[in-house]
């Protein structure tokens, strides 16, 4: 499964989350958009700082995981911590497409109206 590289990090993944592998809440799935609410402070864990810096612009959880080079589960645990501290907010993209938000027929009518202009 590959020789141990010389440049991987010395910290084990479980030390990032204090041994937790499961997020307490289901607030985050792969495509949840995360937005920073407060600026990172100096005493924070570096991953939290990185998340807060990245999420100044809404970023999906998968993107965060790719940026941090961490497994999704770990990122979700980290995000849950930040959410509990109120440092980020999570927005679910599905809510925009959920039924009742905007009727596709209405959109169609708008499109037709626009074309007729």
């Amino acid at each position: 499964m590959g020789r141990p590289g010389r440049d991987d990090a010395p910290d084990r993944l479980f030390t990032l989350t204090g041994g937790r592998s499961r997020a307490d809440s289901d607030a985050f799935d792969l495509v949840t958009l995360v937005v920073t609410e407060t600026e990172p402070t100096s005493g924070m864990q570096s991953e939290h700082r990185a998340i807060l810096t990245t999420c100044r612009r809404p970023t999906a959880v998968v993107e965060l995981a790719a940026d941090l080079k961490l497994p999704i589960s770990i990122v979700r645990v980290l995000l849950t911590d930040l959410l509990d501290q109120g440092r980020i907010s999570a927005r679910h993209p599905r809510s925009a497409a959920s039924p009742g938000a905007v009727d596709p027929r209405l959109l169609e009518q708008v499109l037709v109206g626009l074309r007729n202009l």
């Binding site: 499964m1 084990r12 479980f14 499961r22 999704i72």
Partner: peptide, 27 residues
């Protein structure tokens, strides 16, 4: 080598139960 393997497995398995076990082994 085992730690590197475990790290690779942790990257590969997204199931949280498997991950918990892998963390235990890792530790």
């Amino acid at each position: 080598g085992m730690l590197a393997d475990l790290r690779a497995m942790q990257e590969r398995h997204s199931d949280e139960d498997v991950l918990a076990d892998l963390f235990h082994l890792d530790h």
